[in-house]
């Protein structure tokens, strides 16, 4: 496996006509993800700075429970594994049906995550813990919905990618796209570790 030049999911070899392009695409996408990671980093820093700024409103400890976030953790983690399986079907069998099946499972898990996440956010809103209540809640309402927005975009992407696999089959564009999609999706799971730890587990201490 030392032949592949890009980090992460290995796809091919240099003899492959499209692999040079795929390699550049994947490397470029990694750079983009690193840039996005810094965006999350700045938002995390903001959240930590804003933690005490509750302005007599509810604090993290009063507001958060572990049940919803743990369900979301489970869904997202499972989806990280299933998108890996989708990629395996692409890579080792070039099986359109199984690839799209695993993509569909991933999509459903992502949608479940979004449902649970939206449910708890709406609950906060009803309890008067909207973003306008305090600087702390503003930071919370930036961090968690920003991640959810990423998941939503990921779901749209999964749908488009599945359609492309069905229509075009596995050429270097669709496989390169699947590679980048899976990097994106795994990346969202890693960011979620941060959210679970800093926001929800941190609130329990």
């Amino acid at each position: 496996m030392s032949q592949a030049r890009h980090p992460g999911l290995k796809l091919g070899h240099e003899h492959d006509p499209g692999s040079g392009e795929v390699e550049a695409l994947v490397f470029g996408f990694w750079i983009f993800m690193m840039s996005d990671l810094l965006i999350f980093g700045c938002v995390f820093a903001t959240y930590v700075v804003m933690l005490p700024q509750v302005a007599d409103g509810p604090s993290a400890a009063e507001l958060f429970h572990l049940r919803g976030p743990l369900i979301e953790t489970t869904l997202l983690l499972a989806s990280s594994v299933t998108i890996g399986f989708a990629l395996l079907e692409t890579k080792h069998r070039a099986d359109k049906r199984r690839t799209t099946l695993w993509l569909a499972v991933t999509f459903l898990l992502g949608a479940g995550f979004l449902f649970s996440s939206t449910h708890s956010l709406l609950g906060h809103l009803e309890n008067g813990a909207g973003p306008s209540r305090s600087a702390f809640l503003s930071a919370y309402w930036l961090l968690v919905p920003l991640h959810a927005l990423h998941v939503a975009i990921g779901c749209l992407w999964i749908a488009v990618a599945a359609a492309q696999v069905r229509i075009r089959g596995f050429d270097w564009v669709t496989t390169g796209g699947l590679l980048r999609l899976s990097i994106y999706w795994h990346f969202l799971d890693i960011v979620w570790i941060g959210i679970l730890s800093v926001v929800y587990l941190g609130a329990m201490i």
Binding site: P17, K91, A94, F170
Partner: peptide, 11 residues
């Protein structure tokens, strides 16, 4: 089935 097979063969 395209280039996926080639990878495994050459790899």
């Amino acid at each position: 089935m395209s280039h996926m097979d080639k990878i495994d063969e050459s790899g």
